[in-house]
């Protein structure tokens, strides 16, 4: 979503890469009404039927009488208690999801910034090739990739053996079924969601601004923190959001690389729906997860002072 408040209209500054045309200002030949609605209708209808209405169903389901079942049917009793029960029973996987998702986002930011910076400023004519290479590994199935990590981190694998020799891990120490493996898997799987937005905003920075700071005797580190970093903030904000939201909702990494002690809330919701058929509890938990994520995102965006990015 691009709100236009506070965004200056694109201006061509000589030597600066032209601002990519955003949504506004509107093109001149824009026609009103009529056929526009017709073009929009099928897509909007699909989203209304299968995105908006389902969300309403989710809210309703979360308030059903918890005694209902597939056979007896469900009754709408405004059972707000579902939320209390869900929170009481599942607050651990809920907090764990936010914690693991947050950790993975921080690691992605560190790794992703280095990579995006290298591509934007140091790759020269290899820029396009490196960008392709960033995305390429992620076209292999998510699950196959994650299973591959399971092999790499396995108890008798070379990673564990090396760490044991280096005394980082004890002799019976392991990586699989630990939070380390889950966070590592999340970090790996969501890295491109961080790299691409970071690259997009680093790439727009005029290198002459950084040169100017060093002409004015700023240490390279000062130049980085006073010039490059602030200018890349839009990319940092969108990258962290694009990483955190799916990472906190993911349960594939937790189930394949972790143990029940690393269970994340997505897995709980999934099994409440499909194994336990406890729809009201599952729906309530799903709602809680979404509200928590929305609140965290709003607070974060406000603190980062980048509301206009949303």
């Amino acid at each position: 979503m691009t709100s236009t408040a506070g965004v200056a209209p694109p201006v061509d500054v000589p030597g600066l890469p032209a601002e990519p045309p955003g949504e506004l200002p509107p093109p001149t030949g824009r026609r009103r009404g009529g056929i526009g609605y017709l073009l929009l209708l099928p897509g909007l209808l699909w989203l209304a039927l299968f995105f908006v209405v389902p969300f309403y169903s989710l809210v309703a389901t979360s308030l059903y009488d918890p005694a209902g079942s597939d056979f007896r049917g469900y009754e709408m009793t405004w059972a707000v208690g579902n939320y209390v029960d869900a929170l009481q029973e599942y607050w651990r996987p809920l907090l764990r999801s936010l914690w693991y998702g947050g950790l993975a986002t921080v690691f992605c930011l560190v790794l992703g910034y280095v990579l995006a910076y290298a591509i934007a400023f140091k790759a020269g004519r290899w820029k396009n090739l490196m960008l392709v290479l960033v995305v390429a590994p992620f076209f292999t199935s998510f699950l196959v990739r994650t299973l591959s990590w399971k092999l790499i981190l396995a108890d008798d694998g070379w990673v564990v053996n090396t760490l044991q020799v280096l005394q980082v891990l004890g002799d019976d120490g392991r990586l699989l079924a630990t939070p380390v493996a889950v966070v590592a898997g999340l970090t790996y799987n969501f890295l491109p969601f961080m790299v691409l937005p970071l690259y997009a905003s680093l790439e727009k920075i005029d290198p002459r601004l950084v040169e100017a700071s060093s002409d004015l005797y700023a240490h390279p580190a000062v130049g980085f923190f006073k010039v490059t970093w602030p200018l890349s903030l839009p990319g940092v904000v969108s990258g962290t959001l694009l990483t955190f939201i799916p990472a906190a909702g993911d349960y594939i990494n937790a189930e394949l690389l972790g143990s029940p002690n690393q269970r994340m809330v997505g897995g709980v919701i999934q099994s409440l729906f499909t194994d336990a058929n406890d729809y009201p509890a599952a729906a309530a938990l799903s709602m809680v997860l979404m509200v928590l994520i929305v609140v965290m995102v709003l607070v974060y965006v406000r603190r980062a002072g980048t509301e206009e990015l949303l």
Binding site: F50, P54, S57, L58, D250, A283
Partner: peptide, 17 residues
């Protein structure tokens, strides 16, 4: 922007209802 698990459970809630 919505987490997949929320999208998926909403749709399932609709299909069940």
């Amino acid at each position: 922007a919505a987490p997949e698990i929320v999208l998926g459970s909403s749709l399932l809630a609709l299909f069940v209802a």
